[in-house]
C-alpha cells in the first residue's frame, strides 16, 4: 500500500519534470503560428506568414545549404570513425585501450568553447581560411563520441561465434565483416548517422567561431535574436528544426530497437 502511494508521488513529480523539459518546445509552435509580432500571451490569431517569410529569405537558404552540407559530411565521417573505434573497443584487447577510448570520448564533456578556441588558434596560426570545411573538422570531433556510444551497444551484442563460423566457411576477414557483421550492426550505423546529423545541425559554438563569414542555421538564428522584428521568423525556423530533430531521432530510435531485436538483445536507452 505504502509502495503504491510512493510510486504515485514519484509519478506526479516525473510528469511535472517532463512538462518542465518540454515547456520551451511546446511554446515554439504556438508563437510560430501566432499572428502577433510580439512574443507574448494572449495569442493574436493563426498565420503561416512567418513560414512564408522564412522560405523567401536568401541568407536563410544559404544557411540551410551550409548546415546540410556540414551535417551530412560530419555525420558520415563521424560514423566511419565511430565504426572503427566501436569495433576495436568491443572485439579486441590492445595496450592503452582505456586511456585511448577515454581520450576519444573527451569532447563529450569538454567545454565546447575550449575545443572551438583551440582549433581557431591553430587554424589562424596555420593560415587556413575559415569556411564550412573547418566547421566540419570540429563537428566530426564532437559527433564521433556519440556515434561511438550508439555503435558500441550494437557491436557489443554481437556473437563472436557468428564471425568464426564465417571464417570456418572460408570467408576472409573482410568478407566476414562485410557479409556477417555489417548487416547485423546496420541499424546501429543508421542510428549513429541520424544522431550525428542532428548534433551537427544544431551545433552552435563551433559553427559560430570556425565558419568565418558563412552562415549556418544556428549562427543565423543567433545573429537575428537581437532584432525583435525577426523573432517570429526565428520561431518558425525553430519549429521546423525541432520537428526535424524529433523525426530524425524517432527514426534513429526505431533503427536502434530493430537492431536490438535482430540480435536478440533487450537494451534500453540508446546512449545508456
Amino acid at each position: 500500500m505504502k509502495g503504491r502511494m510512493n510510486g504515485g508521488g514519484l509519478r506526479a513529480y516525473a510528469v511535472l519534470y517532463l512538462l518542465f523539459l518540454y515547456a520551451p518546445i511546446i511554446l515554439l509552435p504556438l508563437f510560430a503560428f501566432n499572428a502577433g509580432t510580439i512574443i507574448a500571451f494572449p495569442l493574436k490569431g493563426f498565420t503561416t506568414q512567418w513560414f512564408q517569410e522564412m522560405w523567401g529569405n536568401p541568407t536563410l537558404r544559404r544557411a540551410l545549404t551550409n548546415s546540410l552540407t556540414i551535417a551530412v559530411s560530419s555525420s558520415i565521417l563521424a560514423t566511419c570513425l565511430g565504426i572503427f573505434a566501436a569495433r576495436a573497443s568491443t572485439r579486441f584487447a590492445f595496450p592503452g585501450k582505456g586511456p585511448i577510448m577515454g581520450f576519444i570520448m573527451l569532447p563529450m564533456v569538454l567545454p565546447e568553447i575550449i575545443v572551438a578556441m583551440s582549433l581557431l588558434v591553430v587554424l589562424l596560426g596555420a593560415g587556413i581560411e575559415l569556411s564550412i570545411l573547418t566547421v566540419i573538422l570540429g563537428h566530426v570531433l564532437m559527433c564521433t563520441p556519440y556515434a561511438i556510444a550508439v555503435l558500441t551497444t550494437a557491436f557489443s551484442s554481437l556473437d563472436k561465434s557468428l564471425e568464426e563460423a564465417a571464417f570456418d566457411l572460408g570467408e576472409t576477414r573482410w568478407g566476414a565483416f562485410r557479409l556477417v557483421i555489417l548487416p547485423l550492426v546496420m541499424p546501429g550505423i543508421i542510428s549513429a548517422l541520424l544522431i550525428s546529423f542532428t548534433i551537427s545541425l544544431d551545433e552552435f559554438i563551433i559553427a559560430f567561431f570556425l565558419a568565418g563569414n558563412e552562415p549556418t542555421l544556428p549562427t543565423y538564428i543567433f545573429s537575428q535574436l537581437r532584432f525583435p522584428k525577426a523573432i517570429p521568423v526565428i520561431m518558425a525556423l525553430g519549429t521546423v528544426l525541432v520537428a526535424l530533430s524529433i523525426v530524425l531521432l524517432a527514426l534513429g530510435e526505431y533503427f536502434r530497437r530493430r537492431g536490438n531485436a535482430r540480435i536478440g538483445a533487450t537494451g534500453t536507452g540508446g546512449l545508456v
Partner: peptide, 20 residues
C-alpha cells in the same frame, strides 16, 4: 520514458535557451 527525456536535449540548444 528514456526517449521522451532525451528528445528535448537533442533539439537546438540555442533555440531552447532563447525560448527561456
Amino acid at each position: 520514458w528514456l526517449f521522451l527525456i532525451t528528445i528535448p536535449f537533442w533539439t537546438s540548444y540555442l533555440i531552447r535557451v532563447f525560448l527561456w
